[in-house]
Structures are given as C-alpha cells and as structure tokens.
Design a protein around this nucleic acid. Sequence first.
DNA 1: CCCAAGGTTTGATCGAGGTCAAATTCTTGC
DNA 2: GCAAGAATTTGACCTCGATCAAACCTTGGG
Lengths: 248, 248
Amino acid sequence: MRDADLEEIRDLSLFRDMDDAHFAALMRGAYHQSFPPQVTLIEEGQAADFLHVVTEGAVEMYARWEGRETTMSVVRPVSTFILAACINDAPYLMSARTLMPSRVALIPGSDLRTAFTKDPAFAKAIVGELASCYRSVVRHAKDLKLRASRERLAAYLLRHVPAHGALDFDLQIEKRLLASYLGMTPENLSRALRSLRDDGVAVEGQHVTISDFDALTAVARPTALIDGPDYCGREGSESPSRRDPGGH
Amino acid sequence: MRDADLEEIRDLSLFRDMDDAHFAALMRGAYHQSFPPQVTLIEEGQAADFLHVVTEGAVEMYARWEGRETTMSVVRPVSTFILAACINDAPYLMSARTLMPSRVALIPGSDLRTAFTKDPAFAKAIVGELASCYRSVVRHAKDLKLRASRERLAAYLLRHVPAHGALDFDLQIEKRLLASYLGMTPENLSRALRSLRDDGVAVEGQHVTISDFDALTAVARPTALIDGPDYCGREGSESPSRRDPGGH
DNA sequence: CCCAAGGTTTGATCGAGGTCAAATTCTTGC
DNA sequence: GCAAGAATTTGACCTCGATCAAACCTTGGG
C-alpha cells in the first residue's frame, strides 16, 4: 500500500488515535485495490470478511428484496463501511457497488477484532464510529417515516448546500439514485424538483441553485435530530442557528 | 437497588462479561425506579445523561417532527436503550415513554464511559450491542423502503409467531402503535389485517391465529436480511430453513 | 353498574405517489 | 461526430394508503 494511502487512512477518526504498532499490524494484512465503476464490492448475505475503506471515488450501499432495490447511502472518501457486520462477524445487510472509478482498502475482519482487543484507543474509536453510524440510520428512518417525499427532497437539498457562502452546488449523484435514496421513483423526484421551483429551487441538469433559502426552509423545516449535527447549528444546540445568508 | 434487579441486569449480554468490581462501581451510581404508564422517560433533543435499562414493563421509543409522531420501536425487559447517544455524549434522537407500569434502571453516561475505558470485556460487549442496534435499524429501514404496508404487516406477524409450536399468539402492543411502527395509519392497518384473512390470518381482538402459514409466508416472503437472525434459520444461513409446521 | 374516554372498525372520499408509455436529453463507445 | 443506450422528463392514468366522519367496542373510574 502506498504511503500516501496509509496516511489518509491513518487520518480517519477510526484510526487516528491508534497505537503505531497496532496500526502497522492492521495494515499488513490489508489490500488496497482500484475498481472501475459499477463493480459489486460486496453482496448482502455474504459473510463479513473485510472492513472496507473508500479512499477515492464513491460507493453505493444498497439493498434488494424480491426484485426491488433501494439505495441506503452513498459512501465517499475517506470513510469506512460495513463496520458493524465485521465487528459482529455477521452477514452483510447491504450490498455495495462502485459508482465511479474508486480505490478501496480491505482490512480483514479478524485483524480488526484482534486490534480491537489490544488497543483501547482503537476500541473507543470503533464505538464512536458505530454509534455515529447507528444515529445516522435512525435519522434516515425518521426522515422516511415523518416527512413526505417533497419534504425529504427539500431537506436533502438544504443538507447539501455548501457550508459557507454559495447557495448553489452540484448534485453529486444521479437523480435516479437520489430518488431511490429518498424512497421515491425517478418520475416522482423529477416532478417534486419541478414543484420546488415555487419554493426557491432552480435545477439545471446536475446544478442546483437555491434562490429563496427561507422558502425552501419552510418546506423542509430542517432539524438537527433528523438532518444531522452538521446541518443547522451543532447537534443538540438548544437554539439551532439558521444560516445567515437569506436573513431571517 | 434490589439484588434480584442487579442479577437481572448483570445477566444482560452488555454486562455479563464485565469485571465484578467494575460492575459494582457502575451500579453504585445507578438508580432504579418504577413508573406508571404513559410517563415520558426521555425527550428527543435532550442531552444523554443516562443509559436506560428496562427491567419490567415496556417502553416505546418514538420520534416527532412538526406535529407528526412515529414509533420507532418497543423495548421490552430486559434490555437497554439509547446506548448510542450515551456513548457519543450526544442528544437523544428519540423520545421514550412507558406503555405500562415499568421499572427502569438509570446508569449515568459518564460512569458508562469510564467503565468502558477500564474494562475491555465491557468495551467489547458495548461494541457488540451497538452493532446489533445498528443492524436492527438498518433492517427496519429496509423493511420500510422495500416492502409495501401489507407485506410489512405480514412479515411482522411471522416474526411474532412463537419460536416453537403454536401458530397463534397475542399482539403485545396496541394496534395504534403497531400501525405507527409499520409506518401506516390505524385505519389502514385495520383494513390490511382484514385483507390478510384471505392469506391465512385470523384476528380477534389482540389474538392472532395463523391458519395458513404458507399463504402468509407467500405474502411476507421473509428473509433474515430484513426480518432478523431469529426469524428463519440463523442469520446468514445460506438455505434458510423454513418452519416445519405447515409442511412445504 | 354506568358512563366517559379512548381505541378500533367501517365507510366514503381524496390525493400523493406509483406505473406505464413515449418523447427528449445526456453519455459514451466506436 | 454518430449512433446506441441510458438517464431524465412529461403525460395519462390508477392504486395504495391517507383523511374525515361516524359508529362501535373496551376499559377503567366513580
């Protein structure tokens, strides 16, 4: 594995506080591979042999049932997926495929569990990571159960407004995938996007411009307890400070 | 805290392998209280001060948004809830209320985090528990996104058939709650239950009788990757062995 | 025992969102 | 640059499930 890659992985919150020796041992057994787009990395139901770390590209996590398929999340560099299955040594609940040319590091689950018992700092990091994953799925479930599709879309757009400054950005995934992630059909997404024109959203291809932040906010009514700590104010802040641009 | 209660908590997979001294220390700071029904134990958004352990009764985990409300799960003795929030020292994502007279042990989050760093066996147990929680929410999300409401109901019923023997049982929660858990209205649940009469389900009040297991299975098409390891065959078994009674 | 409150069922109606089909625009290999 | 294949959009239609309203049943307190 290249040193630059090692650096990047080392810098993940999951590995940052780890002992040097333990990290080195963990990486000795690891692979680092490049994949073209549309390659299936893991298939749901398989045994969880490797923790995966995306270092370049993008990976879609999706699930199937009886011919239907839904995307559960999109994993971007640099972060890990299917940690829970590895830890529990249980079958994957989701499949994963590359969305573009990607590089993925594979860390044997057994090594992971060994490192876990030997390195308290690592154990702590794993727990933190798992808890974060858990909370993120809970938010997804709340989003699905509490909001209508139009509201989910509006909230998604707000979540993806760049942290500072501009009120426009590119959708980083195909609308087809976005629709599936939001639990709706591509047709319905298309119509919902159009209907949000009246609420301050302009879409041209992949490019989204928020022309009326307050109007969109009125549709999405975002909250840290669904949209995550990074959206409006820090998670748990009692008075979530809305974005200033747009001036309340 | 009564010795009997301590025993029960000690026996949870989360605490079972813990060092005696550490367990004792953890319990010193803990409360154990009785609550009447319909008492709010925690409110989403609050800081996560205590890990909760239900020792008697039943607790509903639910979430609210803009006047809407949905039940996320029902926690029964003896198990814990909101572990993730405690570990991350982050605000609760869900609220909790008692559904019946219940007893709940409250363990200070700070003690929990201390014990975590001192006791490797406990750390391991926490990770296992968190991973299980994570996987359980993922399954819930898959259920919601991949199945229609009728199918979710059918699968729910199959999951609640007693492990051995009888094909009838009592719903342990109000239909109102079940509807909310399954992401549907009470009216729609009522109609869906009725429509399942044609698929081998008889309902009288709280009592459910599966008269045609195969017919119901054909509707629900259960799988370990959604319905959990305990349903059909062990999780990950390549050839999920269906229940024998009903003879394929 | 009766009443009030809340849960459940049923009926009627409506609307969000799914399905099907076709037109259109974007990608991409050649 | 072109043509084939996708992705996206648009339109027409329909279904599932929500909503509203009312009747019915259960349950617990006086």
